[in-house]
């Protein structure tokens, strides 16, 4: 019964079944499945499968977004319980698109795939003032990820790195960048820790920077 419920939650997220995930999650909790197990064996495993399907081009952005929405229906039920129990994620990653740039989807896909890899992702959204990235680093984010799709906004990335240095926060955080306006060369030029061309690369990059696996 417990296994069936966990399998159902996992399958529901992979298939992007919206509307019933909260009830399924509550039913699993009622039968005694710990919230942390639903999180790790249900949701994270499901998003890991979604990430693999995305990399293999079986899933595309719409399918990934719908799975993520299904995951969030379940997460909304779990979050208060997980916070109370103090379960630690692999690391916290803060993601955002830099100030002036309104493109959301690319960095959201990276966030979703990172979630599937076991990271806690804090999304700052798009058009994010540089100061917000710095606050996230000060608040304990292990990785700051920035996206830019317009070359006119990419100087903001260098600005964030400069602000991190000025506040003495640079050594405690890994800075990664991505988006159509940036390149590996630009990452090196501004002193970022790495560049990811797509979501799969971004996950590999974060893991290698944090020495995971």
């Amino acid at each position: 019964m417990e296994d069936d419920l966990l399998t159902g939650i996992k399958a529901g997220v992979v298939a992007g079944r919206l509307g019933g995930m909260g009830d399924m999650t509550r039913a699993a909790l009622d039968t005694g499945v710990p919230a942390a197990d639903i999180m790790s064996l249900g949701l994270i495993e499901a998003m890991s499968i979604v990430g693999e399907k995305f990399e293999k081009k079986e899933y595309f952005v719409p399918e990934v977004l719908v799975s993520a929405r299904a995951m969030h229906e379940s997460m909304d039920v779990l979050r208060p319980l997980l916070e109370a129990s103090g379960v630690e994620p692999l690391a916290r990653v803060t993601m955002g698109t830099v100030k002036g740039d309104l493109h959301d989807i690319g960095k959201d896909i990276v966030s979703i795939v990172l979630t599937g890899a076991g990271f806690e992702v804090q999304s700052l959204g798009a058009d994010v003032p540089s100061e917000k990235f710095v606050e996230a680093a000060a608040g304990g984010a292990g990785v700051v990820g920035m996206s830019s799709l317009l070359t006119t906004t990419r100087p903001r990335m260098a600005e964030v790195i400069r602000l991190l240095e000025e506040r003495g926060l640079r050594d405690g955080v890994k800075v990664i960048i991505g988006g159509a306006a940036v390149t590996e060369g630009f990452a090196n030029e501004i002193g970022a820790d790495g560049y990811g061309a797509d979501a799969a690369q971004a996950v590999r990059l974060v893991k290698s920077l944090l020495g995971i696996q």
Partner: peptide
């Protein structure tokens, strides 16, 4: 863009 992407399915 995200809402339209999701609505292609939902």
């Amino acid at each position: 863009p995200e809402d339209l992407a999701i609505k292609t399915i939902t």
